[in-house]
Every structure is written in structure tokens, then in C-alpha cells.
Design a protein around this nucleic acid. Structure first.
Length: 270
DNA sequence: ACCGGAGCCTGTTAGC
DNA sequence: TGCTAACAGGCTCCGG
């Protein structure tokens, strides 16, 4: 579900409301949610710790604690992190809960249960393989051009590869390729320098535009206060099969690439 | 190195 | 209306 913009919104919201709080208790009703240590170990190492920082790396949410441990959460397809009064009704599909000082609970709701909570003293072992952050200063047109030429892979699946660039998912890959006027089945080593520059700027603009709109709510995504994003109203191709292209007289098509639904206009994406 | 498929899970929707 | 199959924002593992 959530891609970089959605995770970024969650992180900003939690950073505002959760930093400085103490984790007082942890509950879990779906053991597979806890990826690196079980509940007993997790409680032993985390209860009593203060949350000192919250950051995003790719689609991972990284909680700094005032202990040697770092807690890392991945929402995968349907995960939500909700900050709610501890006295409020928990609702369905909440599998892991953190009771925080201030009488609020941070609730990890996750319908499909793909999400994961990691606890580690070596976060680099989880985050170290990720590709560059597309919105960071160090991600430059020149770097992207070199990265594309260094591979011979189909463009769309390559954009989804978190080792290549981190944070892009199925929606924003398609939207970025549309804005760059590039066909999703192009091979990366055939992208010209000019096309590469177009792709660079499309990725940056698309992601930043989505962040500015609070992310996209399709079914599950919510901000931690429960509110929805607006970006779903601005999609140009994602989920638009059969619709007229917004840029030319073509029709948006749906194909499968790398096992994922891919929406594009075959007339103007070349 | 890269690709395709299966697997992890449940809920919703499209099609018959 | 009711059942079944397909599909969903992610990612990892495996075999070829």
C-alpha cells in the first residue's frame, strides 16, 4: 500500500506527536508481525524506552530509542499506524499495540498481515541494501543516468526495485513514467541522457506533489490521525485503464510487467 | 544478472 | 442473488 509519500506523511505526523514519549507496554496478537525478536524479548528490550527520533528510509519507518535498539516498521500493503487514545475502541485488524506515556496507543493495524516490526542494534543490516532516496540532495540527474546505463533491465520493474531506488512503488512508478513520456517496457540501458533527465524530474515532482497532498488513500492508507490523503484524485494513469489519455488522443492501457499491473499510454509514452 | 512464479494474508470486486 | 476467480499500494525466495 503505502509508498514513499504515504510513509513520509506518517513519519512527519508521528514525529510531531510521539517523540519524547515512553513506551510503557507492548501487545501483540499476530506473532509474525514481530520479525526479529518475539514479544517476550521485545518487551524486555523496549518497555521503558523513550522514542527520541522518527525517520523514514525508503518505505521503512525508523524509531530511534534511548537504548542500543532501533525499532523499524514496514507497513507493506495494508499497514496503518494509528495514534489513538488508549481508552478508545481498538477496532478490527490491530495486531501490535504500543502503549505510550500520555495515555495514547500507537496501533499497528494491518488487514493482510504483511507488515513487520523489526528490533535491531544494527539497523544497517535491514536498511543498508536500499538504493538512494529519490528526494535527497545526493540523488542527481547524473547519478540516475549512470545507474540506468549500468543495468540492462526493463524500466518499470527496475523502478520498483528498492535496491535501485528506494521508496517508489507501483503507483508512483507508473505516474512517473507517464510524466516522463517513457514506455514502461523500455530497457534501462537504452534511455538517452535527455530521457534520463526527464525521468529524474518526473520522479521528483511526482513524489513531492504526492507528499504535498498528504499521500493517496485508495482503501487502507490513513494518516495516523485517521484522515485521508488527496493524491488519489490526481492520478493520470494508475487505475485508469480504458480512459482517454490526459495528454494525447490515446487510451490508457493495462498490462502486466514484473508481475504487477502497469498503466500507461502507448501513444505518447515511447 | 535477470525474470517469472509462488508465497505471505484478507477483503473487495468483477464476472458468470 | 450467489458463488468463484481475480485482484490489491510490497517484498523475498527459488529455480531456470
Amino acid at each position: 500500500m503505502p509508498e514513499l509519500p504515504e510513509v513520509e506523511i506518517v513519519v512527519r505526523s508521528l514525529r510531531e506527536d510521539v517523540i519524547g514519549r515512553i513506551i510503557l507496554d507492548i501487545k501483540n496478537s499476530w506473532p509474525n508481525h514481530l520479525a526479529s525478536v518475539d514479544l517476550v524479548e521485545m518487551r524486555k528490550r523496549v518497555i521503558g524506552s523513550e522514542i527520541t527520533g522518527i525517520n523514514r528510509r525508503g518505505k521503512y519507518i525508523v524509531f530511534d530509542l534511548d537504548s542500543p535498539d532501533t525499532m523499524i516498521i514496514h507497513l507493506k500493503m495494508t499497514g496503518q499506524l494509528l495514534l489513538q487514545p488508549a481508552t478508545s475502541a481498538e477496532g478490527d485488524h490491530v495486531h501490535t499495540t504500543f502503549l505510550l506515556s500520555g495515555d495514547d496507543e500507537l496501533r499497528f493495524r494491518d488487514v493482510r498481515k504483511f507488515g513487520r516490526v523489526y528490533l535491531t542494534q544494527k539497523p544497517v543490516e535491514i536498511l543498508g541494501q536500499l538504493g538512494p532516496e529519490p528526494l535527497s540532495e545526493s540523488f542527481t540527474p547524473r547519478l540516475l543516468n549512470e545507474m540506468l546505463l549500468g543495468r540492462r533491465r526493463v524500466l518499470k520493474p527496475l523502478l520498483l526495485d528498492q535496491h535501485f531506488i528506494s521508496g517508489i512503488g507501483n503507483i508512483y512508478a507508473d505516474e512517473s513514467l507517464f510524466h516522463a513520456k517513457l514506455a514502461p517496457n523500455r530497457l534501462s540501458n537504452t534511455i538517452s541522457e535527455d530521457e534520463s533527465r526527464q525521468l529524474y524530474s518526473s520522479i521528483r515532482k511526482t513524489l513531492q506533489f504526492a507528499v504535498d497532498r498528504g499521500g493517496a488513500t485508495i482503501s487502507d492508507y490513513r494518516q495516523p490521525d485517521g484522515s485521508e490523503g488527496e493524491m488519489q484524485n490526481s492520478f493520470k494513469v494508475y487505475g485508469k485503464a480504458g480512459d482517454p489519455c490526459r495528454r494525447c488522443d490515446g487510451i490508457i492501457e493495462r498490462v502486466i510487467l514484473g508481475g504487477r499491473s502497469t498503466f500507461f499510454c502507448a501513444s505518447c509514452q515511447i
